[in-house]
Simulated assay, not measured.
Amino acid sequence: MYINVIVQLVLMFVVPAFLMLRLYKKMSEEERNEVKTAFTSKHFIFTFGLVTIGCVLFLLEPIFEMTWMETIGVILLSIGIMADIVLTWLDAPSKRKAMLKTIILLIPFSIFLWAVTT
């Protein structure tokens, strides 16, 4: 059936989530508060959150066979990557490092968009 998609989802999201939960339970209360603060920051939500939700929707599309899931997934992924580029540029102390990260993000992003549209 859709074993490839299920294996990808498990390897990309379920296993890391399980490992992070296990590590979170071992943390002290101060470390837990730091993690909560970092995960609820606007930067995290608008970059990694959107990218993660976009990837999940994009990977779930073959299972449910709904093309709107793929479209919304690609849009959310695009917005997340662009937000990460802008926030990196604004927060970077060195514009050389920001430019390097921008190039590093744009190359796989453009390859991904090319692969989706063909």
Rank of each mutant, 00 (worst) to 15 (best):
K95G: 12
M12K: 06
T47G: 00
T37R: 05
F109V: 02
I85N: 03
L57M: 14
S41H: 07
T118P: 02
L87H: 11
T67S: 15
K42D: 01
I63N: 06
T117P: 04
K101W: 12
D84S: 07
N4G: 14
V74Y: 08
G49W: 02
F18Y: 15
L60N: 11
V35W: 09
N33P: 04
T40A: 02
Y2M: 14
V51N: 10
L77I: 01
I111H: 01
K101R: 13
M99S: 14
R22T: 11
V14R: 02
V14L: 15
M1T: 11
A17P: 08
L76W: 00
E29M: 15
E30Y: 10
E30K: 15
W114L: 05
S110F: 13
F48L: 11
L77Y: 01
L9E: 09
S110V: 10
Y24D: 06
I72N: 03
F58T: 14
P16Y: 04
N33M: 04
V86H: 03
L77K: 00
G49R: 00
A83F: 13
V116K: 14
P16W: 05
P16E: 05
M66E: 07
T71P: 04
W114C: 02
T47S: 02
K25F: 13
G49H: 06
L11D: 10
L76A: 02
V35R: 08
P62M: 11
L11G: 08
L113T: 04
V74L: 15
L57T: 05
S28K: 06
I3C: 09
M1S: 13
S41F: 07
I79N: 00
F39V: 13
T52A: 13
A83K: 10
K25N: 14
R32Y: 08
T52I: 11
E65I: 11
W114V: 01
I53E: 00
S94L: 06
M66P: 01
I103Y: 04
G80F: 00
T40D: 02
S28I: 05
V10L: 14
T88G: 15
L21A: 12
T102R: 02
I107T: 09
V86L: 06
M12F: 13
C55R: 04
K26H: 12
L76S: 01
M69W: 15
V74M: 14
A115S: 12
R22S: 09
